[in-house]
């Protein structure tokens, strides 16, 4: 390799750890916070662009109030409720459409329609039909449903046909085929769906709250901050939304189904001993 090319590769490697999957490297975040800080110094007007320290200070003072925690709790309840409902419904619908061509013909265009329609159209439409307290739940569910359905359907359709033939020859019971072949085949797709669903559902739910202004909600707080030109508070609430989204994603991805689909040999070492004893 030419020395110049080698130097170029070395340089690329040096920065690689700051990019791609390591996007959350603390140095990257510190860089952007420094840019924000410098910009706020340049603008020098809190109303237009508050600095990171002012926002953190505001967030700290907000966290000392009960209204903050009740808004966070109720928003979480509504939006996570919607996501959970969509996960359950999406999986059931995917099973139905993969096993029934009539159901597939009926639901596929509907899912495509929901995916292509702007979320604001649904929010305004649903505002006419539903109460404002339940609307964020409905919108989160509606946005997440097609994503879960598409991913789980792809997982079911993508089951290894050779394994399915083997199951057929051995006349394995349906329940066993579902547990041993279908679930492990769908799991990586469900995991991908869950990751997209959390981000999408959370953002759509907050947007719905901003537009419908339910009683106690993060969206209402964001709306009121904008109304009273409380820019620092607006930033603090936005930061809350980002932090909550990050924490929920981390927690759920760790708690729900996220160990690898192939267990490690050490996980079943007890089983080996059991066989030995028998």
């Amino acid at each position: 390799m030419k020395p110049s090319a080698e130097k170029k590769n070395k340089s690329a490697g040096r920065w690689q750890r700051f990019s791609g999957s390591r996007l959350s490297h603390p140095a990257v975040w510190l860089f952007w916070i420094a840019v924000w800080f410098l910009l706020s110094l340049l603008v020098h007007r809190e109303l237009l662009l508050p600095g990171p320290l002012q926002v953190l200070q505001k967030l700290g003072s907000m966290m000392l109030t009960g209204a903050f925690w009740s808004s966070v709790a109720l928003s979480l309840l509504r939006i996570l409720g919607g996501i959970l409902a969509a996960l359950i419904l999406g999986v059931l619908l995917a099973i139905l459409t993969e096993y029934s061509s009539l159901a597939k013909a009926l639901f596929s265009p509907l899912m495509l329609l929901v995916r292509s329609t702007p979320v604001v159209s649904f929010i305004i439409l649903a505002l006419i039909w539903l109460g404002r307290d339940i609307l964020p739940l409905f919108i989160s569910a509606l946005m997440v449903l097609p994503v879960v359905w598409a991913n789980v359907s792809a997982g079911i359709a993508g089951r290894d046909p050779q394994l399915m033939e083997m199951a057929r020859v051995y006349r394995l019971p349906r329940g066993r085929v579902f547990r041993r072949i279908t679930v492990p085949s769908v799991l990586p797709h469900f995991r991908a769906a869950l990751r997209s669903a959390l981000g999408l559902g959370w953002k759509a739910g907050i947007a719905a709250e901003v537009l419908t202004v339910p009683k106690q909600a993060i969206g209402r707080m964001i709306y009121e901050s904008k109304l009273y030109l409380e820019t620092t508070e607006l930033f603090a609430w936005t930061l809350t939304v980002i932090l909550l989204s990050y924490v929920i994603e981390r927690l759920l991805l760790r708690l729900v189904l996220l160990p690898g689909s192939v267990p490690k040999a050490k996980d079943i070492s007890g089983q080996k001993e059991e066989v030995g004893r028998a």
Binding site: M166, V169, Y170, R180, I181, S261, V262, P263
Partner: peptide, 15 residues
């Protein structure tokens, strides 16, 4: 019935 195919057709996620 039982069969052994040309490919082993084992479930990769099971021991």
């Amino acid at each position: 019935p039982a069969a052994v195919f040309q490919e082993p057709r084992l479930l990769p996620w099971l021991t």
